[in-house]
Design a protein around this nucleic acid. Structure first.
Lengths: 235, 235, 235, 235
DNA sequence: GATGAATGAGTATTCATTCAT
DNA sequence: AATGAATGAATACTCATTCAT
């Protein structure tokens, strides 16, 4: 078909143009998938021309990378802060899992893009996403170590394995949801189940009741503190 | 002019040709991935022309499907039998997990192909692979139900979730290995860890040494001690 | 997909096999069109193998040619005879047109195949179909010449043109029907219209009333009277 | 190694490139037919690559469609105007037929392409060509109705049939010429013949010298004469 | 800084026909 | 006589990327 009407040429600041490319690419990658999205379509949607995108990005994959980085960065923006504000191993563990589920629920497609196109590539470890992911997943390690330090988790807790089971389980479950195999993704319920499950599995065998309030650990900690103080008083 | 020697027409039994196509495709899919493998390459590798492949398969994706089916079928060939020969919930659970890890360890790339190209497709549920997978994963359900029936697992064990965590965890862990992020895949160790982990998480709290209603007692004991101390102070 | 169950090998007399190939090809050409019908499909439908067809035919086009010949031959089988049994220029003309319409109505697709694949080819004039068609269309010429000889058609009747308009008109009209642009193909009505149209156009201007059966009666009555008188003379 | 000189990237105005593609495609379609013309050949002839064509056209068939539209549009450009300038039913009818013949004579192959590839397709009625053709053939209807209104054509003139015979006849005749079966296409002569033929066939019988209800009378008159002569004999 | 026309290297798939068995 | 496995050449269409303007 012959050409359609010429689009108006809108000149924009580089940062805005860049932001626009990222935004539209993000949208289209999510809607149609990475491979099914052609640069021409992206350009057309923005109202610019393919060549222009290549002034900002060396490669289509670069666009994807930046899109994913931006999104990931944003998704984890307040994660650490929020996590820092939560006390108690169980609470923190619960929040971690809950947060991961939330992220997956909000943007399952992007997660998939990371899995398929970033994590699989050879230079994954050089990407910013790898860094983000590392710091993200390190939280699991920290929390478990906290539990160990507090004496509620077994000393030989298989940290890496727990991480794998938490993330793997969440991803696997979410995938069932994303692919339509599961009807609903009840984030709160699943988060509870998983955290409870993991918590229980890590507990020192006779250290504590598994069920009980999530505040059990807190209570113990407080009690210990209290005891110490009282001891001092007694001296 | 480059070489253009006429290829000798080699006639082969259909089963052999078919097997050959499946074998070479399998290899190349594993080595280069599905998309990066062109039918021309496969044909060339075998020493036939593309058209010949299309006498045996309607479509490239069909080739993939059959390759995966064949492999999967084979991988699960004696699984049920072996599982049937194992007694004890813990042992059975361990075997189930160990077996899955073994399969993934042997052919992680094919697993990936299933995830990426079969599980993702709309007609997944009509594939033989779906059936295989279903019967495969149903083993998890059965084992957990056995545990419940035997009175060692909690009545409200989140079966689906456990399944997700087991498979998800195994896949995630294996993926780290496959992608080279993890050095070794110690199947036995991991199988032990996971099965232990899951087993413990599912145990009825005071039914076995694993759990602990004793923890409650501890708190109570602590509180009693504390109370006594406070009482002393008050004197 | 791998091979399905082997078909039983049925050995047949060459003539039967040939007839079968022609029959099935005929059917499939009509149903799916020439290009859309593959030799493999034809063979499969018969229960034989591609190679076998090529023992009977040199080429796919040869199959088509024979199919069309056989059909055409058959369609015109009793045409000449029937035509010979009809007297009167007008009646003969009407029959000729009516017959052509009937043929087109019965097998419009085959006619189309002739137009598209046979008539268009360079060696058309060497085909049997050309011969058949020639003898077929020569009937038009003969009838018109009869009309001229009888003194009812103008001496300079443009015979070739009439032939073109008759066949062209019929084909064009039928095509509208075949392609669904026209609802019904009322063979009798159209045959009447065309023959009437042509007849009138060819009539010597003041030789005879075109319409009216009433005029016929008058003439007949007159002729009868005349005959009686002549008979009397002969006495 | 054969020549592999890098092609110089020649940039051209879109309209020119488009025109070029249409022009060359037109030529090659005419020379080799639609199916036998590959996009690669067209591109090569122009000196561009296939991909470039696909910047201007979505599909090979689109190219054909535009080629045909352009040509048809052009062919009919001044038809209506010229027709409007001609008075008299007979003259107008003659011009209509003559014009159609002229078009066919000038580009018989393209007509064939329309017949084979456009008119046959399901979405024919959505094409511009359909519109053009419709308005084109409606001229026949109008002219015949004029004749009826003027009282020179029979009231019940089978308009649709006439249209079929005119177009069908012209096409059929032209086809004989195109396919080399007819030596010459004497447009003027044929146009005269057809228009005369049609005109005469449509005339009210005794409205003009052409027709004749008078013919009946003439016969009767002759018969009367004859009778008189016989009567004389009887005396 | 931007444009957008042009590139070029794919890629799956089809099918009439051949020929070794 | 038949088989049917194998051929091989063709073809429309895609798209990330480049570069002349």
């Amino acid at each position: 078909m012959p050409q359609a009407a010429k689009k108006k040429r809108v000149r924009q600041k580089p940062e805005e143009r860049l932001a626009e490319i990222i935004k539209i690419s993000h949208q289209m990658f999510v809607e149609k998938g990475y491979e099914a999205t052609s640069m021409a379509e992206v350009a057309n949607e923005i109202g610019i021309v393919e060549g222009t995108i290549y002034r900002y990005f060396k490669t289509k994959k670069d666009v994807l990378l930046v899109v994913l980085e931006k999104w990931y960065d944003n998704a984890l923006a307040d994660y650490e802060q929020n996590l820092a504000g939560i006390t108690g191993v169980k609470n923190r563990m619960h929040f971690m899992i809950w947060h991961h589920l939330k992220v997956l629920q909000a943007d399952p497609v992007l997660c998939d893009l990371i899995v398929q196109h970033v994590r699989a590539s050879d230079d994954y470890e050089t990407t910013k996403i790898f860094q983000l992911n590392k710091s993200y997943s390190s939280a699991v390690d920290r929390i478990i170590k906290e539990g160990i330090a507090e004496g509620i988790f077994v000393e030989d807790a298989p940290i890496a394995l727990v991480r794998d089971m938490v993330y793997g389980g969440v991803e696997y479950h979410s995938w069932r949801y994303v692919s339509g195999r599961s009807k609903r993704l009840d984030v709160d319920k699943i988060a509870n189940q998983i955290s409870h499950f993991v918590y229980k599995a890590l507990l020192i065998e006779n250290s504590e009741p598994v069920s009980s309030d999530t505040s059990n650990d807190l209570v113990l900690a407080k009690l210990n503190t209290l005891e110490a103080k009282i001891d001092k008083l007694n001296l």
